Deep mutational scan, measured.
Amino acid sequence: GATAVSEWTERKTADGKTYYYNNRTLESTWEKPQELK
């Protein structure tokens, strides 16, 4: 079946920190989402 992984995108802030952005829920998080573990 379909997985939720594609909803999350790994992004970088202007100062180079990595965060994760969810295209479906429009939420962002510093922690790696469960779906990516």
Rank of each mutant, 00 (worst) to 15 (best):
G1P: 12
G1F: 12
G1D: 13
G1V: 13
G1T: 13
G1K: 11
G1S: 13
G1C: 15
G1E: 11
G1R: 11
A2E: 14
A2H: 12
A2W: 05
A2N: 12
A2Q: 13
A2R: 12
A2Y: 08
A2M: 14
A2I: 14
T3A: 14
T3V: 11
T3Y: 06
T3F: 07
T3M: 10
T3K: 12
T3L: 11
T3S: 12
T3W: 04
T3I: 13
A4S: 13
A4F: 06
A4D: 13
A4L: 11
A4Y: 04
A4W: 04
A4M: 12
A4G: 11
A4H: 13
A4K: 11
A4E: 12
V5H: 13
V5M: 13
V5F: 10
V5N: 13
V5S: 13
V5G: 11
V5I: 13
V5Q: 13
V5P: 13
V5A: 14
V5R: 09
V5D: 14
V5T: 13
S6N: 14
S6Y: 09
S6Q: 12
S6R: 09
S6G: 14
S6K: 09
S6L: 11
E7R: 03
E7W: 04
E7T: 03
E7F: 06
E7P: 05
E7I: 04
E7M: 04
E7Y: 07
E7H: 07
W8L: 01
W8E: 01
W8I: 02
W8H: 01
W8R: 01
W8D: 01
W8T: 02
W8V: 02
W8G: 01
T9E: 15
T9K: 05
T9I: 14
T9D: 11
T9M: 10
T9Q: 15
T9L: 10
T9G: 06
T9P: 00
T9Y: 08
T9F: 09
E10N: 01
E10Y: 02
E10K: 04
E10A: 04
E10I: 06
E10D: 03
E10G: 00
E10H: 02
E10S: 03
R11S: 05
R11H: 14
R11V: 12
R11K: 13
R11F: 10
R11A: 08
R11C: 15
R11N: 05
R11I: 14
R11D: 03
R11E: 07
K12L: 11
K12W: 08
K12T: 12
K12V: 13
K12F: 10
K12G: 03
K12Y: 12
T13N: 08
T13K: 02
T13R: 03
T13D: 13
T13M: 05
T13F: 03
T13Y: 04
A14R: 09
A14W: 07
A14K: 11
A14E: 11
A14L: 10
A14Q: 11
D15I: 03
D15A: 09
D15F: 05
D15S: 09
D15Y: 06
D15P: 00
D15C: 14
D15H: 05
G16L: 02
G16W: 01
G16T: 00
G16R: 01
G16V: 00
G16Y: 02
G16H: 04
G16E: 03
K17A: 07
K17M: 09
K17D: 08
K17G: 06
K17W: 05
K17P: 01
K17E: 10
K17N: 08
T18V: 11
T18L: 09
T18D: 04
T18K: 07
T18M: 06
T18E: 04
T18Q: 04
Y19Q: 03
Y19M: 04
Y19R: 01
Y19L: 04
Y19N: 02
Y19D: 02
Y19V: 04
Y19F: 10
Y19S: 02
Y20K: 00
Y20P: 01
Y20G: 00
Y20I: 00
Y20Q: 00
Y20A: 00
Y20V: 00
Y20D: 01
Y20T: 00
Y20W: 15
Y21P: 01
Y21K: 03
Y21H: 07
Y21S: 03
Y21W: 08
Y21Q: 06
Y21A: 02
Y21C: 05
Y21D: 03
Y21T: 06
Y21M: 04
Y21I: 08
N22I: 00
N22A: 00
N22R: 00
N22S: 02
N22H: 03
N22P: 00
N22T: 00
N22W: 00
N22F: 00
N22K: 00
N23Y: 11
N23A: 10
N23D: 09
N23V: 15
N23E: 15
N23W: 13
N23P: 10
N23H: 12
N23G: 09
N23R: 10
R24V: 15
R24P: 01
R24G: 06
R24W: 09
R24A: 10
R24E: 09
R24H: 09
R24S: 08
R24Q: 10
R24M: 10
R24K: 12
T25Y: 01
T25K: 01
T25F: 02
T25I: 02
T25P: 00
T25H: 00
T25R: 01
L26N: 14
L26Y: 12
L26R: 14
L26D: 09
L26F: 14
L26E: 13
L26H: 15
L26S: 13
L26A: 10
L26W: 06
L26T: 10
L26M: 15
E27D: 04
E27P: 00
E27I: 05
E27T: 06
E27L: 05
E27K: 07
E27F: 04
E27N: 04
E27S: 04
E27G: 03
E27A: 05
S28A: 10
S28R: 11
S28N: 05
S28K: 11
S28I: 15
S28H: 09
T29L: 07
T29P: 00
T29W: 05
T29E: 04
T29A: 09
T29Y: 06
T29R: 14
T29M: 08
T29S: 11
T29F: 08
W30E: 07
W30K: 04
W30M: 08
W30V: 05
W30L: 08
W30D: 06
W30I: 06
W30T: 08
W30N: 06
W30G: 04
E31S: 06
E31D: 12
E31M: 05
E31N: 07
E31W: 07
E31V: 10
E31Q: 08
E31K: 05
E31P: 03
E31A: 07
K32R: 12
K32E: 09
K32Q: 11
K32F: 05
K32T: 09
K32Y: 07
K32G: 03
P33M: 02
P33L: 02
P33A: 03
P33H: 02
P33I: 02
P33N: 02
P33T: 02
P33V: 03
P33W: 01
P33G: 02
P33C: 02
P33Y: 02
Q34Y: 10
Q34R: 07
Q34K: 10
Q34H: 11
Q34A: 14
Q34N: 13
Q34W: 10
Q34L: 12
Q34P: 15
E35M: 05
E35R: 04
E35V: 06
E35N: 08
E35P: 05
E35K: 04
E35S: 10
L36W: 05
L36Q: 08
L36H: 08
L36Y: 10
L36N: 09
L36I: 09
K37F: 14
K37D: 14
K37W: 14
K37I: 14
K37Y: 14
K37E: 14
K37N: 14
K37V: 15
K37H: 12
